[in-house]
Nucleic acid binder design. Structure first.
Lengths: 212, 212
DNA sequence: CAACAGTTCAACAAATCACTTGAATAGTTG
DNA sequence: CAACTATTCAAGTGATTTGTTGAACTGTTG
């Protein structure tokens, strides 16, 4: 014991976990599964990739145990193996945002300009929820809302927001949230709401951060 | 904004961080730097790799900002960019040990049989340190001890333990610790000590876990 | 400023990876 | 049990990664 070959093999084992997340497509899969379980073709659709390719990536995640599967009817649902995997993904994101030079640029290119967006912190939201003077709006796709949401939140997926604006109560502060800090849904929702005269802000991050 | 290409680029950015850890050699480097800063050829020596090759890996870690460098005289010392990188490495290890099938076997192959080794928890050690009836032994290489150690610990690198046994006080419980749960130094030290009649146990993990 | 130790670069072959295409499989529903 | 659907497998291609080697830097010291 204690020999080089065994040590290399052990650390290769650790590295396998990191490498499973070491691909943008697989990172997106994990990011998606943090919200809720999904079938292969739903995942492929979200990624804009072929089902075959998505399946391959899922197999890789499965091989290192980061995800698990469940069959329901004739589709197979993938979900994260544990809360700890979500934590790993969160830490990866944090390290990237702290240390990767270009990440701010990449994020800005994807998210657009957030400087004119009101942002509400989690603490502030908790406060106002206690006071009861705020409407919380979950703008993620419905399955993700069903899998878990902020207590009392109203579900209007961002794609349907324009046509369901009349369901949003007037006269109260609105706080929209979505998947996390790198998700554009709440941004889009806030912009739409403000255009229509609603006092809207986005939660600083998303549901996973709220729940954990 | 919000388009596919920008999203892919952003997630590729996150994935870069994971992929930097996605190689056994680089994982060993990070594992080593958690303890203390090191020069390139010290790292190469620890890894059993060529200096040129080690330097390449270091460049990759540097590119994503996981490590930083400092020059002193005519050598360059690498260290982790932040405590958060150490946290990332810890979470990777935890996820691997929870979810990777073969990890127990790999660990057993490297660490050998631990079933006959007394293990002391951190809480227990804290307790006994307060009581003052324990000798704490840091068996890591000296530079790592210098970079930080459990208060009051005695430094005897495992390689020198046999020849410095007389420096270990008799008649008290001894607790040896090293780099972490996947480090063999403390195991070896405990076995050596017990062979010579010392009542010795190893700390459940290592200095980084104690410090954080 | 020359010699030197330490570090990095450049170029290579072998291995691995991402994605595509098309076929095979397993489980479900009529 | 036959038709169907969702998923996986297998083979192929081009691009990337790995570890070597040897040469080229870089900053320090005598």
């Amino acid at each position: 014991m204690g020999d080089r070959a065994a040590k290399d093999a052990l650390f290769d084992g650790f590295a396998d976990v990191a490498r499973a997340l070491g691909n943008g497509r697989r990172a997106q899969i994990v990011d998606l599964l943090v919200q809720a379980e999904r079938s292969v073709d739903e995942i492929a659709g979200e990624l804009g990739q072929s089902v075959a390719n998505t399946s391959q990536h899922l197999q890789q995640l499965l091989r290192v145990g980061l995800v698990r599967t469940r069959r329901d009817g004739n589709r197979i649902y993938y979900s994260l193996a544990s809360e700890r995997v979500a934590q790993l993904w969160r830490v990866v994101r944090e390290v990237a945002s702290e240390h990767v030079e270009e990440l701010d640029d990449l994020a800005a290119a994807y998210l657009g300009d957030r400087s004119r967006l009101d942002i509400m912190t989690r603490d502030e939201l908790a406060e106002r929820l206690r006071a009861g003077d705020v409407v919380v709006l979950d703008v993620r796709p419905e399955p993700e809302f069903r899998a878990g949401h902020i207590a009392g939140a109203l579900s209007i997926p961002v794609a349907e927001l324009s046509s369901r604006l009349h369901q949003v109560p007037m006269g109260q502060q609105i706080v929209a949230y979505c998947r996390g800090p790198y998700c554009v849904y709440a941004d889009d929702a806030v912009r739409t709401l403000r255009r229509h005269g609603y006092p809207a802000a986005r939660l600083e991050d998303g549901y996973p951060e709220w729940a954990s």
